[in-house]
Design a protein around this nucleic acid. Structure first.
Lengths: 208, 208
DNA sequence: TGTACATCAGTGAACGCGCGTTCACTGATGTAC
DNA sequence: TGTACATCAGTGAACGCGCGTTCACTGATGTAC
């Protein structure tokens, strides 16, 4: 059944859909979001510039699929980061924060794409679901810190706590990626020492 | 003397240099950074597409001048924000933070440009000086909180405090501008209610 | 006060660029009988 | 088992787009004598 599908290898291409996604990820990791072009993706997949439209409709369609997968990986990373914090709510939050920044700094192209509404189909249901799930991890970590159950609706303090936690990790990652924190790392390897400093930064954020 | 200069009105243009800067600011405020093009700026100034090169060398040159001015305004805004906090170091820091976010949300195009290394001449000495001065305001506010004199070199805790303060306001502004905080403001006017929440967010950041 | 000349701001046409998408098509595969 | 046909993935040429920059130039102004 699905074995049939997999066996197929070069009628026309084999699995162009996945090849296009892989090529896009490759571009994102080597040249960043700005380096992406649909024609380049097609070129790398060894296919004509019109071929991608067949699978994704448009460039935005392809990027939306790539961003959706990135969000899923991101969610996993956040979850694992929180788990590393054990039972203590504060430790879980900080563990998640470290995972957040690590993801952004190690995969800047994919991370940036996740925030580029203008390049995506922002109403795509899969994309929305995947991004909402990532947000859910953040909210859950804050709920633990504030000792709120999943049922309680978010009061003002909880909203502020969530936004602040998100802001500090997103801000840290963005500043680092934009090279604004370079003065702090002197001649040393950039991400290494920045990541060393991160726990100290997060320790200053204490909601509640 | 300089009256001579100002009297001049239409030899060729009068003051094309300023007209180009004004046109760029206009584009930034209405269409954002992505909406900028050198040809469009020339069009708005009523001048041929080759004219700007005469004054700024290149598109990056023009944007660098615009960004430099934006940094100067930004520095003033941060200073005024801190002053609003009076004598209390914590209040000064929060006042500065509010000013930071207000600047970003009210002038998103200029604010975004300030972070677009790829569009600027990052080694331009005026740009560097202006951006360094803005950073200086932030550092000074943190020094007060930590009771450090201007002479003391920054230890690890101080570096973390600075980076965290910067990250939380930059992150807040970026998330807001990317529309990521929309769920929190429901049907209400976006920036109004977001800015209301900001002090609560900043209150959770307590360095030292 | 008049003239010759240098300066310099702005012209406008042309350059080459790569882009996303469209279109009518081809040709290999899968399927019904 | 063989044939006719439908499906559908991929082709490749062409579309129009606006961009930043270049180039040889023009024509108004400022300046020296």
């Amino acid at each position: 059944m699905s074995g049939r599908r997999r066996k197929a290898k070069s009628y026309h291409h084999g699995d162009l859909r996945e090849a296009l996604i892989a090529a896009t990820d490759k571009i994102l990791s080597t040249r960043g979001v700005e380096g992406f072009s649909l024609r380049d993706v097609a070129r790398r997949a060894g296919v004509s510039p019109a071929a991608p439209a067949h699978h994704f409709g448009s460039a935005a369609g392809l990027l939306t699929e790539v961003a959706t997968r990135a969000f899923k990986d991101f969610t996993q990373a956040l979850r694992a980061g929180a788990e590393r914090g054990g039972e203590d709510p504060g430790e879980r939050l900080r563990g998640q924060g470290v995972a957040y920044v690590r993801f952004a700094l190690s995969q800047p192209g994919r991370y940036s794409l996740m925030f580029r509404r203008d390049l995506l189909l922002p109403d795509d249901p899969h994309l929305r679901a995947a991004s909402h799930e990532a947000y859910g991890e953040l909210e859950a970590a804050i709920r633990r810190v504030l000792e709120m159950s999943r049922e309680q609706s978010l009061n003002r303090a909880a909203q502020a706590a969530i936004i602040g936690a998100w802001a500090i990790v997103h801000g840290f990652a963005s500043l680092a990626l934009d090279g604004k924190l370079a003065p702090f790392v002197g001649a040393q390897a950039l991400h290494g020492s920045l990541e060393d400093l991160l726990p100290d930064v997060l320790a200053n954020y204490r909601p509640g």
